[in-house]
Design a protein around this nucleic acid. Structure first.
Lengths: 199, 199
DNA sequence: GTCTATATCCAGATAGAC
DNA sequence: GTCTATCTGGATATAGAC
């Protein structure tokens, strides 16, 4: 019995999701070049040939994941930006949300860590580099802007806003790295400690 | 004219230092497996064969650098531990020292970042894994201990000491990563912002 | 869509001349 | 000590059967 179009599409998207999920784990753990197509095949239970049926190269998979990472991050950041909340509460909400995600979602931590890794490396595909270049500033800008608003209102401490935004994100990346090391033994710290720097 | 023993040793240590320095840059930037022996050769101006005259494999170079990183870090941490200073000043001094180093020394940032990377990866040499396992806890323990002392004296904020130690080091690692991205455009933030979490 | 078999390429490592 | 030439293994990617 031949499959219809929907079934085919569903099968395809299921396969690509399996590949992407396994690759995210592996890339985060070992980096692009130490991850072999055969690892991805083993992890998904597919044959090596089948991976190539869906993606034309390891690089293409990697680039796709980096794009996903920024899609998710940008979406979250935009929601934060548009929240109807005073600046200091936005910062608190951002930390809370990020820390909760870091603790409960392994993939969330992996995305942060993978982007961090990718941002440093020059041994990544050109298209991934381009994606990073186009997206890397946005989260910093949004946090910096929130901080400036809070400083004008007098509700956020008056250190250099750019430095504070850098600390905000490097703290998160540092914790994402820490979770990458500790895996499920990781327990997120209290957001209150981090908030001391801001309010 | 034949060289004497000292000259030979000097030449040898000069070569190995060149190799180690170039490899640190490359490994920090691209990771172990994306760094080729030919890259190291090109970076040092040596031939590929000459690299093998001094080290028997890429992994050996990598392991050596990881050991160096911990030698330096442990030394600094032990000095801090033995300083005759009240706990809260020790924390301040640690941040100051780390941030200054991060800003002025490219290698310092690279060591931190490389160890961070290596701690996550399982695609590193066994001996490097062992070195990491044996050394990773010490810096956290020392900071945690200092924090506990300060909390008993009432000079350090009373959040969970373990969490505070984690935040201390993840902040540093986060900033080391940030410098790895920005390279010489990196400017360290004020230690005062970070100190808000502790005093 | 999926698998197995295989071609191709390239990086790590060695050998041997100077 | 240093270089060039070369061997070898393993990983990417393709071909072709089912």
């Amino acid at each position: 019995m031949p499959r219809n179009r929907e079934q085919n599409e569903q099968m395809r998207s299921q396969r690509t999701e399996q590949i992407l999920a396994a690759s995210l784990r592996l890339f985060a753990k070992r980096g692009l070049s130490a991850t072999k197509i055969s690892d991805i095949a083993a992890e998904t239970g597919m044959s090596q040939g089948l991976i190539y049926h869906y993606y034309s190269s390891k690089e293409e998979i990697y680039t796709e994941i980096i794009k996903d990472a920024f899609r998710r991050l940008n979406e979250a950041v935009t929601i934060l930006k548009n929240m109807n909340l005073p600046p200091e509460e936005k910062i608190k909400k951002a930390f809370d949300g990020l820390l909760i995600n870091l603790e409960k979602s392994d993939d969330s931590a992996r995305y942060h860590y993978l982007v961090a890794q990718a941002s440093v490396s020059d041994a990544i595909p050109e298209e991934a580099k381009k994606t990073i270049k186009e997206n890397r500033d946005y989260p910093y800008q949004v946090i910096e802007e929130i901080i400036r608003e809070g400083q004008e209102l007098g509700t956020i401490k008056k250190y250099d806003a750019k430095e504070m935004a850098v600390i905000f994100w490097t703290t998160i990346k540092g914790l994402a790295f820490h979770k990458a090391v500790l895996e499920n033994r990781f327990k997120a710290p209290s957001a209150d400690i981090l908030m001391e720097m801001f309010i």
